[in-house]
Simulated assay, not measured.
Amino acid sequence: MSFLLRATLVIAALSYCAANRDAPDPGLQPPVSVASLPSLWEALPPEIRERALREGTAQAGRHLASALALPASRDTLADADRKPAWRGVEGH
């Protein structure tokens, strides 16, 4: 029964997507064109531009430092665990 329900839902979803394939979605359009971004940047007060650059650079530096940092060791073995006692016949 669950197979039939899942198959019906998949077929319905694919049919819906096929029916709306050619309709443009106004929600997917960018709210600001790329050409207007420099003019928006220049419209900001100098203090805000400087602060945005400073904080953005600091955040990028933190992200880069964390990406380059070596991961902490997840090794849980003690030194005694790495040197097991000898098992076998002595004297050979």
Score class of each variant (00 low, 15 high):
residue 62 R to H: 08
residue 32 V to P: 01
residue 39 S to W: 07
residue 22 D to M: 13
residue 9 L to M: 03
residue 7 A to M: 11
residue 15 S to I: 07
residue 28 L to Y: 00
residue 50 E to W: 03
residue 68 L to K: 14
residue 51 R to E: 11
residue 4 L to Q: 10
residue 75 D to R: 10
residue 50 E to N: 09
residue 26 P to K: 07
residue 66 S to N: 09
residue 51 R to A: 15
residue 44 L to W: 03
residue 37 L to A: 11
residue 62 R to K: 07
residue 24 P to Y: 03
residue 57 T to Y: 00
residue 78 A to H: 06
residue 45 P to L: 00
residue 22 D to T: 10
residue 80 A to G: 13
residue 4 L to H: 01
residue 45 P to S: 13
residue 91 G to H: 08
residue 57 T to W: 01
residue 24 P to D: 00
residue 18 A to I: 08
residue 34 V to M: 13
residue 69 A to D: 06
residue 7 A to V: 15
residue 20 N to P: 02
residue 8 T to V: 10
residue 10 V to K: 05
residue 31 P to W: 10
residue 78 A to G: 05
residue 30 P to C: 09
residue 88 G to C: 05
residue 74 R to A: 08
residue 8 T to C: 07
residue 10 V to S: 03
residue 83 K to H: 11
residue 11 I to W: 02
residue 89 V to D: 06
residue 58 A to T: 01
residue 73 S to W: 08
residue 61 G to H: 05
residue 66 S to K: 12
residue 20 N to W: 15
residue 34 V to P: 10
residue 34 V to Q: 10
residue 38 P to V: 00
residue 40 L to A: 00
residue 87 R to A: 08
residue 25 D to T: 03
residue 2 S to Y: 06
residue 16 Y to K: 00
residue 11 I to M: 12
residue 77 L to W: 13
residue 16 Y to T: 11
residue 24 P to R: 13
residue 10 V to R: 15
residue 12 A to G: 15
residue 45 P to G: 00
residue 13 A to L: 12
residue 12 A to P: 12
residue 30 P to T: 04
residue 50 E to M: 05
residue 65 A to I: 11
residue 89 V to I: 04
residue 53 L to A: 00
residue 84 P to E: 00
residue 63 H to G: 05
residue 1 M to E: 11
residue 76 T to V: 15
residue 27 G to V: 02
residue 84 P to Y: 02
residue 84 P to V: 09
residue 91 G to L: 01
residue 62 R to L: 10
residue 16 Y to D: 01
residue 77 L to R: 11
residue 16 Y to Q: 10
residue 64 L to C: 01
residue 42 E to S: 15
residue 16 Y to P: 00
residue 70 L to F: 07
residue 40 L to H: 13
residue 33 S to D: 13
residue 43 A to D: 09
residue 34 V to K: 02
residue 20 N to D: 12
residue 9 L to T: 05
residue 72 A to R: 15
residue 53 L to E: 12
residue 23 A to G: 11
residue 90 E to Q: 04
residue 60 A to D: 02
residue 62 R to N: 09
residue 88 G to T: 11
residue 4 L to Y: 14
residue 14 L to E: 13
residue 85 A to V: 10
residue 87 R to P: 00
residue 55 E to M: 12
residue 51 R to Y: 12
residue 36 S to V: 07
residue 84 P to A: 06
residue 41 W to Y: 09
residue 54 R to M: 09
residue 37 L to Q: 09
residue 48 I to N: 02
residue 85 A to E: 08
residue 37 L to G: 05
residue 67 A to F: 10
residue 24 P to K: 07
residue 59 Q to W: 00
residue 29 Q to W: 07
residue 12 A to E: 02
residue 86 W to T: 01
residue 26 P to V: 04
residue 66 S to C: 05
residue 34 V to A: 12
residue 81 D to M: 12
residue 15 S to Y: 08
residue 17 C to V: 14
residue 23 A to R: 15
residue 74 R to I: 01
